[in-house]
Design a binder for these strands. Structure first.
Lengths: 349, 349
DNA sequence: AGGCATTGCACAATCGATTGTGCAAGCTAT
DNA sequence: ATAGCTTGCACAATCGATTGTGCAATGCCT
């Protein structure tokens, strides 16, 4: 910004003292540094008068503490990550830390690059939701002993503090609710395979099918990532290939929206023609044509816990004892799960 | 982070040269600074070998350029601001700038405080959506010549570059669409009075009513801010006080969700019993019980333009010629606007 | 061979705040 | 009166990278 900021030097000059004295007085160390009340007052007055704002940059250099944390997510506009960002920012601010936001655009290359940028900015800690695929950069973080918290997804070969939901249980709950209504075939609109949040949900889904003795038809799983496009494609494929399909489980809000588009194009009514459950609640869920039954995860709690774990690491310099923090989920029954329509065609073509 | 980062000093030592030479070589100034290819190669090798990451902090201090921009919004988890945050972050990153996120929690006090924090971090530019109320801190920004872009809301006595939607036209479009269906009374669920985005929408609303010769019943305007709670309260009040009300215009997504809750509690069907339009499209809008007709604003364009204007200011050191940037809006007709129900009771009680 | 230009690099100041050390002035004690 | 202590503050180094200036060593020319 154009205006040259006021420096400590100028405050010191205005008060007729040296920088060191000014610095100590402003740091509130007047007493312990034996600065006379008179001098202290003069310094404080000068600082106030000049509108002195200490330079965080200079301070960071000298103290070797940037006062910065990084937040690296695949998509900052996704409500899930936006909520985490908010919680983390506010919590960090309360501890005197500012938050650098970085958006990897679902690309592992960007992610690695942004991680470098954040590190060269000397961030004191990092909350990251990795795309996955390769983990070398995460393992490197693990080795260097950096303060890091991984959110939403964890990786088997990376041992970093992680905060996520009880995905498997959530998926089990959702699938069970569907099965209870008598559905035989359930289409699964999955997110990005390889991410723990996806694979755990898949595990819950399969576990529910298994314990219900349902046929484990793996073909009924489709989808590439957590996007609406993926949900739409997956739903279309399943609908076209399995006309008798009577229920679907979407692994994300976006996936569900894609499915709804596919249903709407085919004039399929929820829950009359087809049932739907989605993972992760959303404000709009209860106002949809058929209020959506969902697995609710406590996104705010995830953000809060992540920030908490991070700050603790920064303060103590140590990783927490417990590495994996799983937050509970809850099945919210609304009206999107019905009985299967009469089996006009009981079998797939 | 625990690991002591590699400094330029160490690179220089490893290459057997001085810091200055190492610095120039790494800056790609080998040729113009007459550094021999041999020496250059040695330095580059040493830097690569040691994994040298230049310290942004030190660089910022010396260059008097932090490479930081600030993003100060009332609610980072609101999809509108989250989208802007994403666009701004990505655009900034492309220009070598990192983004500091700050969330004022809809509080002017927090806003002012966070602004100070951002300034003491030497941000080179700022994108801000102010709560409003008092503007002294904004006027101060105006005076100092700081690089700033105001988004969504502008203030009459603050002359800073601003990016917002054509709110008045949007509201006019929406209201006209309702009036065309023959509605006589339209409830207006407004956002925060005093913010330009609210007041302009209000102006458009009133203008449409006026040009249609409808009765200007000011009592039909309710609401305190853009939240769901406000939308809910406003809708309840209007519904209870004016049973014959047949249409509503919600000034935000959240306001609309609140209205839907009120409708749902009263078993009111959209659009059969009551029509609804909302300002700002949302992915879910077309999948609601009655797909919502909306005024779509191009949120991504707002974010992009804001970032663009900011970077330009930072690079040129000058404010743009045009201060007010209004982005076009679009009326998207779906199914939430119907004819008024038969006037069983044509008049208010 | 001596003068001059060029090449190749080192020295040192700088950005702004922090902090260990040192040094005078003032006071007490003997 | 002088040694010895406290009080009150200044000096200077430091964090890490950048950059203007200066100084050798080499090469070229006549």
């Amino acid at each position: 910004m154009p205006d040259e900021p006021v420096t400590l030097e100028q405050v010191a000059a205005a008060a007729g003292v040296s920088r060191s004295t000014a610095s100590r007085a402003l740091a509130g160390k007047a007493r312990e540094c034996r600065i006379s009340p008179k001098t202290e007052a003069a310094i404080l007055l000068a600082a106030k008068g000049l509108g002195f704002q200490p330079s965080h940059v200079a301070r960071s250099l000298r103290n070797r503490r940037s006062g910065l944390i990084g937040l690296l997510v695949p998509d900052a506009s996704n409500p899930f990550f936006a909520a985490i960002a908010r919680k983390a920012t506010v919590f960090a601010e309360r501890h005197g830390l500012s938050t650098l936001l970085a958006d990897s655009h679902d690309s592992i290359e960007h992610e690695k690059e942004l991680l470098q940028h954040l590190q060269s900015r000397q961030v004191e800690g990092l909350i990251i939701c990795s795309i996955g695929g390769t983990h070398e950069h995460l393992r490197s973080l693990e080795r260097t002993g950096a303060s890091v918290v991984v959110v939403d997804r964890w990786f088997a070969d990376v041992h970093l503090p992680t905060v996520t939901s009880d995905n498997e249980r959530g998926a089990l709950l959702a699938t069970t609710a569907i099965l209870k209504q008598g559905h035989q075939q359930i289409g699964c609109l999955q997110g990005r395979p390889g991410t723990s949040s996806n694979d755990e949900r898949l595990a819950g889904f399969k576990a529910a099918l298994a314990s219900a003795g349902a046929s484990q038809d793996a073909c009924l799983i489709r989808g590439d990532d957590f996007s609406e496009a993926s949900g739409y494609r997956a739903a279309c494929e399943l609908l076209d290939e399995h006309p008798s399909l009577s229920a679907m489980f979407a692994f994300s809000n976006q996936n569900a929206l894609g499915a709804l588009r596919a249903f709407s194009e085919r004039k399929l009514n929820v829950p009359h023609d087809i049932s739907l459950v989605m993972f992760d609640d959303a404000p709009f869920a209860e106002y949809l044509a058929a209020p959506l039954s969902v697995i609710r995860q406590d996104v705010e709690a995830i953000g809060h816990r992540a920030a908490e774990l991070l700050i603790d690491q920064i303060r103590t310099g140590q990783r927490p004892q417990e590495l994996l923090h799983r937050l509970p989920v809850e099945f919210v029954a609304r009206e999107s799960i019905g009985s299967p329509r009469k089996p006009a065609k009981a079998t797939d073509p």
